[in-house]
């Protein structure tokens, strides 16, 4: 099983397998380190910097999600520098972004005691919802530029490369090329970007519509695991059902076939199930 190394986290000695990230090492000793952009099935983007920790001997703080643990490393997860960085990250994001449907960001605000108004009032991400197809919407007011959607569309899963981060600096944005609509773009509507979006910036049209009508109620939704009925790959589906209607389809992130990813038919092609007049009975 490879070699093991020993490091110190908040004064506690920890032994982990070689190649383990600092963040995973922290998890092994139940030390909570917040993350926003990190996703278990995607390459670390290193973008949000919510997961920074202090590594002894390092001039700057270190992103724990991507840094591989080394023998003898001494790590502190809650020094004043770490606390300040986390808090400012939360404050900067909330000053630009609608975080109302971003659970991890809401948690970060709370744990870092962020003042969400401190840097507010300047340029923000507010913009109209992009509603250019009937499968999913893009509400980029909620985007935190975590790169997850780009990675899922690109070489971490779908390999379609329909979207990219374009422009630079504060004007960086997720774009399909010259602001094209999705139907004009290379998008194949697999919705894997939606599956990994942590903020609700990408959302199924059904969920978005139900939410805007105040009909989306997590407590009323049942989730059943089953297998897709299209091709022979055998993707596991989680059917989210509200009032006997499938309102959303996802897949478990830990499933060995899908790793949480589906194709357009599996994710959106379920309507035939509930066309109530499909058979005169």
């Amino acid at each position: 099983m490879g070699n093991r190394i020993t490091l110190t986290i908040d004064g506690q000695s920890v032994s982990v397998a070689e190649g383990t990230t600092v963040h995973a090492a922290c998890e092994q000793v139940d030390t909570f380190v917040p993350t926003l952009c990190w996703h278990e099935n995607l390459s670390p983007a290193n973008a949000c910097r919510a997961c920074v920790v202090e590594v002894k001997g390092s001039r700057t703080l270190v992103a724990s999600c991507s840094r591989v643990a080394e023998e003898g490393m001494v790590i502190e997860t809650s020094t004043p520098r770490v606390a300040n960085a986390r808090r400012v990250v939360a404050e900067l994001l909330t000053s630009t972004t609608d975080y109302s449907t971003a659970p991890e960001l809401l948690d970060l605000i709370e744990m870092s005691s962020a003042d969400t108004r401190r840097f507010a009032g300047g340029a923000s991400w507010e913009q109209p919802v992009k509603d250019d197809n009937n499968l999913y919407i893009r509400d980029l007011s909620k985007c935190i530029l975590c790169y997850r959607c780009v990675e899922a569309c690109g070489d971490d899963a779908q390999n379609t490369f329909a979207i990219t981060v374009a422009g630079r600096g504060f004007d960086s944005r997720i774009d399909a090329g010259f602001g094209r609509t999705l139907p004009e773009s290379d998008c194949v509507f697999c919705g894997n970007c939606v599956a990994v979006c942590p903020t609700g910036a990408l959302m199924e049209k059904t969920e978005w519509t139900l939410r805007s009508e105040n009909k989306w109620d997590d407590n009323q939704i049942t989730t059943t695991e089953t297998i897709c009925s299209y091709c022979g790959v055998g993707c596991q589906l989680s059917l989210h059902v509200l009032d006997n209607q499938i309102v959303k389809v996802s897949s478990p992130m830990d499933h060995p076939v899908t790793h949480g990813m589906l194709c357009v038919k599996g994710r959106y092609g379920y309507q035939f199930v509930q066309v109530e007049d499909h058979m005169p009975v």
């Binding site: 379609t160 490369f161 329909a162 979207i163 990219t164 981060v165 374009a166 422009g167 630079r168 774009d175 399909a176 090329g177 010259f178 773009s185 290379d186």
Partner: peptide
């Protein structure tokens, strides 16, 4: 122009959006 980038995408086998992502930087 957008159509030039689309042609580059065809000629170089690089996805269009990726070219735009680079060019717009």
């Amino acid at each position: 122009s957008p159509s030039l980038l689309a042609a580059v995408s065809e000629v170089m086998h690089i996805p269009y959006a990726e070219i735009y992502g680079v060019a717009s930087f």
